[in-house]
Computed example of a mutant assay.
Amino acid sequence: MLLILAFVLLVLAIAAVGTAFAKEQPQGLARALEALERSGQAGHELAEEADRSFADRIIDPMQERALILGRRMTGADKADRIRRKLDFAGNPRGWSVDRVVSLKVLFAVVLPICLLAYGLLLSLAPAWLVVLAIGGTVLGFFVPDLYLYQAAAKRADKIKRGLADAVDLLTISVEAGLGFDAAVQQVARNTDGPIAEEFSRVLREMQLGLGRSEALRSMGARSNVEDLHTFVGSMVQADAFGIPIGQVLRVQATEIRTKRRQYAEEKAQQVPVKIMIPLILFILPCLFVVVMGPAVLTAMDNFNAQ
């Protein structure tokens, strides 16, 4: 009886294992359907990978690795300085501190490689190749800084040109009976360029609960224009001491317009100096060729005839 019972239990165990195995390993049509489903999933994954852009597949991972290396190379206060440069440049769309750091590393690697390849094509000496590599590394590391500096200079020039008109409109609005917030809104609506963006941001910050003085100080901190700093300081002092804003705006409008006229005269006086470089390098050589060329050719023919 014990042998029969053991035999029955063994048969039941084998049957249970066989059933489980049959469920785990489908046979016939089920196995074919499962294989097709797996191949479809793999093809779907490959299609998704192929649909990704070149930037998502190549550039973004490179920027992440460059960001890690750049954070190790830059100091702790470098992020604050880059953020300040971004504020001066108007915070270009898509630009952040991490992107600037990663681009500095990428340009420091890619630019010397390109210069070395160009030097090898020209068959330059090894000393010149070393100079190109070092110069390309240094230049590539500072390319994002140069871009931000140029963007900040253009933005500062636009602010200098548009600040006088904005303050005039602000003065007229306040003297017409509008409050300071409504006058700022009029400036933001009826002007364009960086100065309109700055006044719009001041208005949004005041609507979010920030004080007038703090919002104006933030606007001055986001720019390196001295006239704007003077205007902000005057408005903050007027708000602190209770001086009528209309009177302060009238004085500031007169001073800023005078400074803008002086700034235009200064730029006009720089034109003769700036035009000397293209004049000497490009215009005068052409004139010398046109004027002296026939005389030189005639002299050469006379000498050859003798």
Rank of each mutant, 00 (worst) to 15 (best):
A166W: 06
A32E: 07
A152R: 11
V271R: 15
S123T: 13
Q207S: 15
R65F: 02
L69G: 00
L29Q: 09
L124Y: 09
I195L: 09
I243A: 12
S223P: 06
L103D: 13
K154M: 04
S234V: 13
G162M: 06
R250W: 01
C114I: 15
Q237D: 05
S173Y: 03
A238V: 06
F141P: 04
F199T: 11
M73R: 13
N91K: 15
P244D: 09
D145L: 08
M206T: 15
I256H: 02
F107E: 10
F180M: 14
R222D: 06
L67A: 08
R217V: 11
L121N: 12
F303W: 12
A15W: 10
L284F: 14
F141T: 05
G136Q: 05
P194L: 02
A215K: 12
F288K: 01
V291H: 02
S223D: 01
Q306F: 14
R204V: 13
A305N: 13
L106N: 08
L169G: 09
R161A: 11
L121P: 01
F88E: 10
G193S: 06
Q207G: 15
K23Y: 10
A268K: 10
V100P: 07
I134C: 10
V271I: 15
L29D: 08
A176E: 06
L178R: 08
A22H: 07
R57C: 01
R57Y: 00
V105K: 08
G233E: 07
L124M: 14
R71T: 04
M62A: 10
Q237P: 02
L163I: 09
G40Y: 01
L146E: 03
Y147V: 13
L33R: 12
I159Q: 09
Y149C: 02
A133E: 02
D51T: 00
A182H: 06
G211H: 10
R201S: 13
F282D: 00
K154A: 10
D56R: 08
G233R: 12
I68Y: 05
D87Q: 15
L249R: 03
D157E: 13
Q247F: 04
I245S: 01
D87W: 13
L121D: 07
A221Q: 15
Q25M: 05
K259M: 10
G119S: 06
A20V: 14
L67T: 00
D239M: 09
S39G: 00
